[in-house]
Simulated assay, not measured.
Amino acid sequence: MSGGHLVHGMGTALEAPTWPAITQAEAEAVLDRFPAAGRLIDLNWHSPRPFSAAALIETDRGVHFLKRHHQRLRTPAALAQEHGFMAHLRAAGLSVPDVVTAANGASVIALGEWTYELHHDAPGIDLYRDRQSWTPFLTPGHAHEAGAALARLHRAAQGYEAPARDDRPLVASFTILSASDPLAAAEAYIAARPALAGWLADKPWRQELTRLFATLGEGVPDQVPLWTHGDWHPSNLLWTAEGQVDTIIDFGLATRTCALHDLAIAIERTAFRWLDLGQDDALGDVDTARAILAGYRTLLPLPTDMATLARLLPLVHVEFALSEIDYFAGIVGDSDQAAVAWQDYLIGHADWFLSAAGQDFLRRLAGEAVA
């Protein structure tokens, strides 16, 4: 399986994986540390997600989800932060994956250069598992239900007071646009990440960020802190046959941000056909954004007015784009992919909002009445 396994790239094509697929012998070795999960029967499916290796495995006690990370990306302590948030949500009644405990009582094990986590099979249909992250919902109803599910998550997250995760790559943090001086905050963010700073050293990043902040707005300080999902798109949701959200999965990017940031991420991930950037100007679907917001408002009021949301949306991806560059430059050593994250993702997405189609999207979104 590992020889022919392909994963999603930064564009539309499948690519050879950075991280090798999990093998049967590897899964057996991991299961030795998780005796409650049973004995391995088969590997049923390998995930096409690119930043880790994961597989559905069948044991004599059922189906489980096994995920492997490189320790430079996620140490056991870093994964334990993620699992702590999931445990809080589960205790509040939210349907999220149930983590299997190892023989030593921990939810994460380390073997050599790798860390592993094992989840019980989660309820729901994985309708979007083979689709790229930046692809829209299949139906407007899914967008509405996803908005309602995000409100359920935000309600369940109340009271979780753990500090934000540390400076590791691939975390959807919110320290730049929440600052009173976003450029100074960006400088601090970059300086704290040597690989990112080194990759940007010969690029006019200060001028580019200054331009974007000046033309698209300088951020939204004074939001109420909240632990959030940070990667809200259809393939991180499992669905019922009736089109409702059954389980919320993949908390790999979660950290302490705010509800507004999570809502803007949800719209940015799903209301635009970003993979068509450069081929088609009409990328945005404001009806999807409105459906997400309408679903959210069935349970919670929006955390701000529509004008503030529209101001955040064009730049909400900036911090995670920098985090992706840090990952590609520092952990993977792939300067070409780092360049895609910088030019196509960070700059390209923001510049689209300065186009006629982007400005029209923002006007229509800002004009949406708040119920």
Results as ranks from 00 to 15, higher is better:
84 G>I: 06
16 A>V: 14
104 N>R: 01
140 P>A: 09
253 L>T: 13
134 W>R: 12
273 R>C: 08
11 G>Y: 10
199 W>S: 02
329 A>F: 01
34 F>I: 06
81 Q>N: 11
285 D>L: 10
284 G>Y: 08
163 P>G: 14
368 E>C: 05
24 Q>L: 15
350 A>F: 12
104 N>P: 00
254 A>G: 12
88 H>V: 13
140 P>N: 03
63 V>Y: 14
185 A>E: 06
340 V>T: 14
165 R>G: 15
213 F>N: 13
225 P>K: 04
136 P>K: 04
303 P>C: 05
113 E>Y: 02
144 H>G: 02
48 P>S: 10
45 W>Y: 14
344 D>Y: 09
370 V>K: 10
17 P>R: 02
118 L>A: 09
43 L>P: 04
173 S>D: 14
265 I>N: 10
189 Y>S: 02
318 V>G: 10
39 R>H: 12
215 T>H: 11
276 D>I: 00
291 A>P: 06
23 T>N: 04
202 D>G: 11
358 G>Y: 10
181 D>V: 01
277 L>I: 12
322 L>Q: 09
314 P>Q: 07
32 D>Q: 15
79 L>Y: 05
315 L>D: 12
109 I>H: 04
115 T>E: 04
330 G>N: 07
272 F>I: 05
143 A>M: 00
219 G>F: 04
161 E>L: 11
362 L>R: 15
111 L>I: 14
311 R>N: 09
165 R>Q: 14
60 D>E: 11
323 S>Q: 05
97 P>L: 09
315 L>Q: 09
96 V>Q: 03
19 W>C: 05
325 I>K: 06
321 A>V: 01
359 Q>A: 14
181 D>I: 01
327 Y>T: 00
283 L>M: 12
17 P>L: 08
298 T>S: 14
204 P>H: 03
276 D>P: 00
198 G>V: 01
320 F>N: 12
129 R>H: 09
103 A>H: 06
30 V>G: 04
313 L>C: 08
149 A>D: 06
241 A>M: 03
205 W>A: 09
20 P>Q: 09
67 K>M: 10
9 G>M: 08
240 T>V: 08
292 I>H: 01
212 L>A: 07
88 H>R: 09
233 H>L: 13
172 A>V: 04
253 L>P: 00
89 L>G: 13
64 H>T: 08
264 A>I: 05
318 V>H: 09
272 F>C: 00
315 L>A: 08
25 A>P: 01
147 G>I: 00
158 Q>G: 06
185 A>M: 05
11 G>E: 14
195 A>F: 02
43 L>I: 15
311 R>V: 00
294 A>D: 15
192 A>I: 02
129 R>A: 11
74 R>Y: 07
324 E>T: 08
263 L>W: 07
23 T>Q: 12
356 A>Q: 13
325 I>H: 07
331 I>S: 13
362 L>S: 10
364 R>N: 12
365 L>S: 10
229 H>Q: 12
211 R>D: 15
360 D>W: 00
325 I>P: 13
71 Q>G: 15
301 P>N: 02
201 A>W: 04
223 Q>A: 11
41 I>C: 13
154 H>R: 01
309 L>V: 01
78 A>K: 07
287 D>F: 00
146 A>C: 06
86 M>I: 11
166 D>F: 01
74 R>I: 07
234 P>V: 05
335 S>Y: 06
59 T>K: 05
291 A>H: 13
159 G>N: 03
